[in-house]
Design a binder for these strands. Structure first.
Length: 271
DNA sequence: CTGAAGACCTGCCTGC
DNA sequence: TGCAGGCAGGTCTTCA
């Protein structure tokens, strides 16, 4: 499901209803998702949720000294529901807060995963230690892209999706950003000049910001925590549009496969 | 070191 | 209608 905009939209949807609440109990409806689930009840019951944060595509539930990190994988969803609400399909974990509020985790494919981290030093955890800058923070600049691309012969699309270069850019937004920057997705990263790197940086920032503003992209099963869909999918210019006319030049959008992932681009506009 | 491919798992869509 | 096949937004591991 989610790239950075979707995770950020989920974060904002959870922060309002949950921040400040004490956690009573955690129920696991199965022992593992992608990895074995930690004993969240032992680690967190009785603690108060200070805030819901985000790093890359991970949600970080700040319970003071102890944090809960959660990755949604492809199909993970969080829903805030009354504690008495019946379990939805593929519901695997329930966090029961005070006031009859519960947070439910649903995940059809079970690619998601969760871990308990100490608040001090969480950035050293293997999930976070090697990550590149956040794309919407000052640490991400044309200069950081230029450095990261300099030694890379891989196609620029794969370099852009590499979390060591910049976090949060997945398959959809990589395609969209490259279209906006008019760069061919198969061009080797090291063969992109400074001017085009500047355009690509601006395109990444713009497309992610617009997607967050639109509430994320609901392609198949992304839903916000309140159950509403996001609307950015209507704004895709190339993703999922193989055979349809380019919004700029009218020629047909093409689909290729790079490193096992579908790539959509305009062969006329992108060079 | 880099890069490509496979694996994880289920649901949904297409086409026969 | 039924079923096989292909496809899906992310990451991690393995292999060349």
């Amino acid at each position: 499901m989610p790239e950075l905009p979707e995770v950020e939209v989920v974060r904002r949807g959870l922060q309002g209803p949950l921040a400040g609440l004490g956690l009573r109990r955690v129920e696991r409806l199965r022992a593992d998702l992608r990895y074995p689930l930690p004993d969240m009840d032992a680690a967190l019951a009785g603690r108060r949720l200070a805030a819901v944060r985000r790093r890359a595509k991970y949600l970080l539930f700040d319970f003071g000294e102890t944090w809960l990190a959660w990755h949604l994988g492809m199909t993970g969803q969080f829903h805030v529901l009354p504690a008495v609400a019946p379990a939805g399909p593929h519901e695997h974990v329930r966090l029961l807060f005070e006031g009859g509020v519960s947070l439910r985790y649903r995940d059809a494919r079970r690619f998601g995963y969760a871990g308990i981290l100490p608040a001090r030093g969480w950035t050293e955890h293997p999930w976070f230690a090697g990550l590149g800058p956040e794309p919407l923070e000052p640490g991400f600049s044309p200069a950081t892209l230029e450095r990261a691309f300099a030694s890379r012969r891989a196609p620029v699309k794969q370099a852009l999706m590499d979390a060591r270069v910049v976090v949060g850019v997945g398959n959809i937004y990589a395609c969209e950003a490259l279209f906006r920057a008019r760069i061919h997705p198969a061009r080797p990263a090291c063969r992109i000049g400074r001017a085009r790197i500047g355009r690509l940086h601006a395109a990444v920032v713009a497309v992610l910001s617009e997607a967050i503003e639109a509430g994320g992209s609901s392609i198949s099963d992304f839903l916000r925590a309140d159950g509403r869909p996001g609307y950015f999918a209507h704004a895709f210019r190339v993703y999922g549009r193989a055979g349809a006319p380019c919004v700029d030049c009218g020629r047909l959008i093409r689909r290729i496969v790079q490193a096992g992932r579908a790539t959509f681009y305009c062969p006329h506009c992108q060079r």
